[in-house]
């Protein structure tokens, strides 16, 4: 008796198309703008300063969101084999752990460094596997997959791995919590509002290590604005 399911092909096709749709939607969508639209539709005032949507904690969360989105794109790529995929998945999981701690204002500098180390270690492992077995970097995989999805990269950018690994990235280290209430911190968020998801991810990744290292104590996440 054959185990062949005549509907298997159909299931596989629908799932494949759905996965592709989700990857494209995640990569292209501006989640920050979407959240702002939701707040407007809900007719709710902007959250008060220091509760997670403004300041350094919010910057870090946004940077993590964007990088996680890019890594999700890598996970969707068929060229990423299981072992490399598991490292990328682990890096993404730890990023969310970092995000939760930042949002809950319980992120100490040592913890941030430890979590970032885990992220960068896993990304480095994934990169090594991909290079050894396919001659491709993680960035190559992401770039090719985005191209398959019809999403263009407008600018070349440094690799995911180096973004997380490099020493504090901001030329002027963050000073926390010095801005007075109501003051705005110049960030790249505004200027990147129309960038593709990939661009935002790259910019976010580039800020990630710097933001995390800028957290001196748990309160800073909340008081950064």
């Amino acid at each position: 008796m054959s185990n062949h399911d005549p509907h298997e092909e159909m299931d596989e096709l629908v799932r494949e198309v759905r996965d592709r749709f989700l990857a494209r939607a995640d990569a292209e969508f501006d989640f920050e703008a979407g959240l702002a639209d939701i707040r407007a539709r809900a007719a709710l005032p902007r959250p008060p300063v220091g509760v997670g949507t403004t300041g350094v904690g919010a910057d870090l969360c946004a940077a993590i969101d964007a990088l996680a989105s890019i890594l999700a794109t890598a996970l969707q790529a068929s060229t990423v084999e299981e072992l490399a995929r598991s490292h990328v998945q682990r890096a993404r999981d730890v990023l969310f752990e970092l995000r939760r701690a930042a949002a809950a204002r319980t992120l100490a500098q040592l913890d941030a460094a430890r979590l970032l180390g885990t992220v960068s270690g896993n990304l480095a492992q994934a990169e090594r596997i991909l290079r050894e077995r396919h001659g491709m970097s993680l960035d190559d995989v992401i770039r090719h997959h985005l191209k398959d999805l019809g999403t263009c990269m407008s600018t070349p950018s440094p690799s995911c791995v180096s973004c997380v690994n490099r020493p504090p990235l901001d030329p002027t280290p963050l000073r926390l919590p010095l801005l007075p209430p109501g003051a705005t911190r110049p960030t790249s968020h505004g200027s990147s509002a129309r960038a593709t998801g990939h661009d935002r991810g790259r910019q976010a990744a580039a800020r990630l290590a710097g933001k995390a290292r800028g957290l001196e104590n748990p309160r800073e996440c909340a008081e950064g604005a």
Binding site: R18, F21, L22, A25, D26, F29, F31, G34, L35, I38, P47, V51, G52, T53, C61, D65, A68, S69, F96, R99, R100, A103, A104
Partner: peptide, 18 residues
């Protein structure tokens, strides 16, 4: 809210659109 809401949005938005 708003921290978990942003995570919920990121996690569910595209699947909801589909």
């Amino acid at each position: 809210f708003p921290e978990d809401f942003a995570a919920l949005y990121r996690e569910q938005r595209s699947a909801l659109v589909w």
